[in-house]
Design a protein around this nucleic acid. Sequence first.
DNA 1: CTCGGGCGTGAGGATTTCGTGAGGACCGGG
DNA 2: CCCGGTCCTCACGAAATCCTCACGCCCGAG
Lengths: 225, 225
Amino acid sequence: MRILIADDDPQMVRALRITLGARGYDVVVAEDGRGALDQAIATHPDLVVLDLGMPGLTGLEVIEALRGWTDVPILVVSGRTESWDKVEALDAGADDYVTKPFSADELLARVRALSRRATPAPDEPVVEFGDVAVDLAARLASRAGSPVRLTPTEWRILEVLLRHPDRLVTREILLTEVWGPQYTSDTGYLRLYLSQLRKKLEPDPSNPRYLLTEAGMGYRFVPDR
Amino acid sequence: MRILIADDDPQMVRALRITLGARGYDVVVAEDGRGALDQAIATHPDLVVLDLGMPGLTGLEVIEALRGWTDVPILVVSGRTESWDKVEALDAGADDYVTKPFSADELLARVRALSRRATPAPDEPVVEFGDVAVDLAARLASRAGSPVRLTPTEWRILEVLLRHPDRLVTREILLTEVWGPQYTSDTGYLRLYLSQLRKKLEPDPSNPRYLLTEAGMGYRFVPDR
DNA sequence: CTCGGGCGTGAGGATTTCGTGAGGACCGGG
DNA sequence: CCCGGTCCTCACGAAATCCTCACGCCCGAG
């Protein structure tokens, strides 16, 4: 049972780490929004304890980005007590909202309640298409048996596409997931990285069969039938 | 979406009934512990809002009794703010715990968060007519099984029409949705794109059966039957 | 019958979007 | 300091899409 703590206050992090660690939870820490997303992708936690007041991305943006690809329970911890803040966070996809200060016992009970509800993470099967195999959890890609190196950015894009087989993923969603919501008009990035991914994964990169472009809209991963 | 309110305070019941009823929830009420269990069995609510301080059975007993046979989300509402009370309720099987007083907005947001967990977001149904199937969410259209390629503008128009089956959609609405409010007199665009859509989707494009024109008014999508 | 308005549709040209190569900025490790 | 790897900028030809324009049809009014 792994818990990601996303909080920039060292004292809070320390307290949470001790509280949760003592209960046998495996604790991972991130200190800003981007780090939280990176850690979430890298470690696939079973629950996220998220402080809203971090530098970088806003808490809301982190919630939305997470919800783009995972159903992991999100417990928001915040100093803001206004009901509007709670409504925003919950509607963005958070599962619970606790205001500081709070007791360790209460937090633990809420963590237990959330993990009880959580759908047991189905082990992600390896995605295969053509002579390529991609293990998202292990961050391992291979082609005709031999490993293929992908850069971090390539992984992020590929992951979003592979998690929505047959669905069109809009340029906006991809850009938001990978670079953040303020980059939604930099479509050139996508062209560049899709080109790279095809070069590494497609049988005939100039005639893509799996990673398709829909002009003016976005991209689509089409698995073999 | 049916919600069971278990509370013995008539004023609170009244407030909750109004708040929830106005949002379209179907509200059922019980005023003591036994009544709550009876109502739960009788009406099978999709969510329970439970006051801990009811006469008869204690709140904890109600939670445990419910958990004996149902996974319905339980949102506890209580005047008791001690963390011990929260821990007890949550560990007994409650999913959330809100202390009085609370704002209606917050309660509603928590209700939404809980029901979201209970029933994973329902996928939009696929719209079918003739030998055509359209999945708006996935941006996937097919005809007799093989995919049909639509341009972004075609998608936007089709989406508006398909979301209002059997209803007349005025040219003004269509133009505003797709090109913006300043294009409401460029009706030529609609003729052009409707023609394209029919060519791609209608069995006999020159005798439309699903995407009908209402001269001088607008267009109408008529599903089978 | 004639006429005119609204509609459908084909044919390009205008515009936007894509794919891709080349190369510079940045960074952490030897 | 150099170096490999990664990310990003820039540029340009190709492709897809959008829009303009022209023409013909249908149908009701006069």
